[in-house]
Amino acid sequence: SSYVCVECNFLTKRYDALSEHNLKYHPGEENFKLTMVKRNNQTIFEQTIN
């Protein structure tokens, strides 16, 4: 599966890399929402900020 930060167009295969991205680029933000999307037999988790 892949993880994408929709706000930044940041894409990674690792959830911990997304967490690091959030700490660096969205410090103090807590209203993240992950949406699971299936595309071409791949699972993509799209992160948006509410």
Results as ranks from 00 to 15, higher is better:
Pro27Thr: 11
Lys33Asn: 08
Glu30Gly: 12
Phe45Cys: 14
Glu29Ser: 11
Phe45Gly: 13
Pro27Glu: 11
Lys13His: 14
Cys5Ala: 00
Glu46Ile: 01
Glu46Gln: 02
Met36Pro: 14
Tyr3Cys: 02
Ile44Lys: 07
Glu7Leu: 08
Lys24Phe: 06
Leu23Asp: 15
Lys38Phe: 02
Lys38Tyr: 07
Asn50Asp: 14
Tyr25Pro: 02
Asn41Arg: 08
Glu46Thr: 04
Asn9Tyr: 04
Gln47Glu: 01
Asp16Cys: 14
Asn9Gly: 06
Tyr15Asp: 15
His26Ala: 00
Cys5Phe: 00
Cys8His: 15
Lys38His: 09
Gln47Val: 01
Tyr15Val: 03
Arg14Cys: 12
Ser2Leu: 11
Phe45Asn: 10
Arg14Val: 15
Lys33Ser: 09
Ile44His: 07
Gly28Ser: 14
Asn31Cys: 02
Glu46Trp: 01
Thr43Pro: 14
Leu23Asn: 15
Gly28Phe: 04
Phe32Asn: 02
Glu20Met: 04
Pro27Asn: 06
Gln42Pro: 05
His26Asp: 01
Tyr3Thr: 08
Asn50Ser: 09
Ser1Arg: 01
Leu11Thr: 08
Tyr25Phe: 14
Arg39Ala: 08
Glu46Val: 01
Met36His: 08
Leu23Lys: 05
Arg39Gly: 11
Asn50Met: 05
Asn9Ser: 10
Val6Thr: 05
Glu7Ser: 10
Cys5Tyr: 01
Tyr25Lys: 15
Glu29Lys: 11
Tyr3Phe: 11
Thr12Met: 13
Val37His: 03
Lys24Glu: 07
Arg39Asn: 04
Phe32Gly: 05
Arg14Glu: 14
Val6Ile: 13
Cys5Lys: 01
Asn9Lys: 15
Phe45Gln: 13
Glu46Arg: 08
Gln47Trp: 01
Asn40Glu: 10
Phe10Gly: 02
Glu30Lys: 15
Glu30Tyr: 12
Met36Lys: 10
Thr35Ser: 12
Gly28Glu: 14
Ala17Gly: 13
Tyr25Ile: 13
Leu18Glu: 00
Val37Ser: 09
Phe10Lys: 04
Asn50Ala: 11
Arg14Tyr: 04
Ser1Tyr: 03
Leu11Trp: 13
Val37Ile: 12
Ser19Ile: 02
Pro27Val: 05
Arg39Asp: 13
Thr35Met: 09
Leu23His: 08
Ser2Met: 07
Val6Tyr: 07
Asn9Ile: 07
Thr43His: 15
Ile49Cys: 11
Glu20His: 12
Lys38Trp: 03
Leu18Val: 05
Asn9Ala: 08
Asn41Ser: 09
Leu11Gln: 15
Ile49Phe: 11
Asp16Asn: 08
Cys5Trp: 01
Phe32Val: 07
Tyr25Ala: 15
Phe45Leu: 10
Ser2His: 06
Glu20Ala: 05
Thr43Trp: 10
Ile44Gly: 04
Ala17Arg: 08
Gln42Val: 10
His21Gly: 00
Leu34Ile: 01
Glu7Arg: 08
Gln42Ile: 05
Leu23Gln: 10
Asn41Tyr: 03
Asn40Ser: 09
Ser1Gly: 09
Phe45Pro: 04
